[in-house]
C-alpha cells in the first residue's frame, strides 16, 4: 500500500509538473501584478464582407467566422448586442479577437488585440476556464482539471506517506492541525462573521 500511494504521489507529480508549475507561476503574476512592467496592448480593426449562414445557431456561426477569418482562440459564448446584432469573441493567451456583426448582416467588424504585456499574457493562461470553445481548449480544461485534482491527491497521499514514514509524529500532527484548523476556521469565520 505504501509503495502504491508513493507511486501515485510521484507519478501525479512528474506527470503534471509543467501544468502545476505554470498555474502557480501565473497565479503569482496575478497576485503580484505590480512586480511586472506595465504596458498597453496593440489594437487593430478591419471590416470584412460576410456571407449569411442560414439556419446556423449563434454558436455554430461563431465557429464559421473563426474558420473563415482565421481567428485563433477559445470561442466565448456569443452575446446579443443592444442593437440586435451579435458579438463573438475569441481569446487565447497573448491575443484576442472580437467580431461584431450588425443586425442587417453583410459585414463583420473584427478588432484584434495583441502584444499584451507579459503579465497579462501570464494571467490569460491562468484564467482559461470552462469547457467549450474548441477541442484544443477542451483538452486544456482536462489538463486544468487534472492539475486541480492533483492538489487534493498530493495533500492526501502526502499525509499518508508522512504517517507511514515517520515514527515520531508530534511535529507532523501539530502542522496538520495548524493547517486544517486555520483553513476551516477561516471558512467558518467568513460564512458566519458579521
Amino acid at each position: 500500500m505504501y509503495d502504491t500511494i508513493r507511486r501515485i504521489h510521484l507519478y501525479t507529480g512528474v506527470g503534471l509538473l509543467a501544468f502545476v508549475v505554470m498555474y502557480f507561476f501565473t497565479g503569482y503574476a496575478l497576485i503580484h501584478g505590480d512586480w511586472f512592467p506595465r504596458g498597453e496592448p496593440v489594437k487593430s480593426t478591419r471590416e470584412e464582407p460576410l456571407a449569411t449562414a442560414i439556419g446556423a445557431s449563434p454558436e455554430e456561426y461563431s465557429a464559421v467566422l473563426q474558420r473563415q477569418f482565421g481567428l485563433a482562440g477559445k470561442r466565448q459564448p456569443p452575446v446579443r448586442t443592444n442593437d440586435g446584432g451579435w458579438r463573438f469573441e475569441y481569446i487565447h493567451p497573448g491575443e484576442s479577437h472580437q467580431a461584431v456583426v450588425p443586425p442587417a448582416g453583410g459585414t463583420v467588424r473584427i478588432t484584434t488585440t495583441s502584444q499584451f504585456p507579459a503579465r497579462q499574457t501570464l494571467v490569460q493562461f491562468h484564467r482559461l476556464h470552462r469547457y467549450g470553445g474548441g477541442w484544443v481548449y477542451d483538452l486544456w480544461m482536462v489538463m486544468y482539471d487534472l492539475a486541480s485534482a492533483s492538489m487534493i491527491v498530493f495533500a492526501l497521499s502526502g499525509i499518508y506517506l508522512w504517517y507511514k514514514l515517520t515514527r515520531r509524529r508530534l511535529l507532523g500532527w501539530t502542522l496538520l492541525a495548524i493547517s486544517f484548523l486555520f483553513t476551516a476556521g477561516t471558512m467558518l469565520y467568513l460564512v458566519h462573521a458579521p
Partner: peptide, 10 residues
C-alpha cells in the same frame, strides 16, 4: 507539505 495541506485541498 503538511503545513500547506489544508490550503492545497481548498
Amino acid at each position: 507539505g503538511l503545513l500547506c495541506s489544508g490550503y492545497l485541498m481548498v
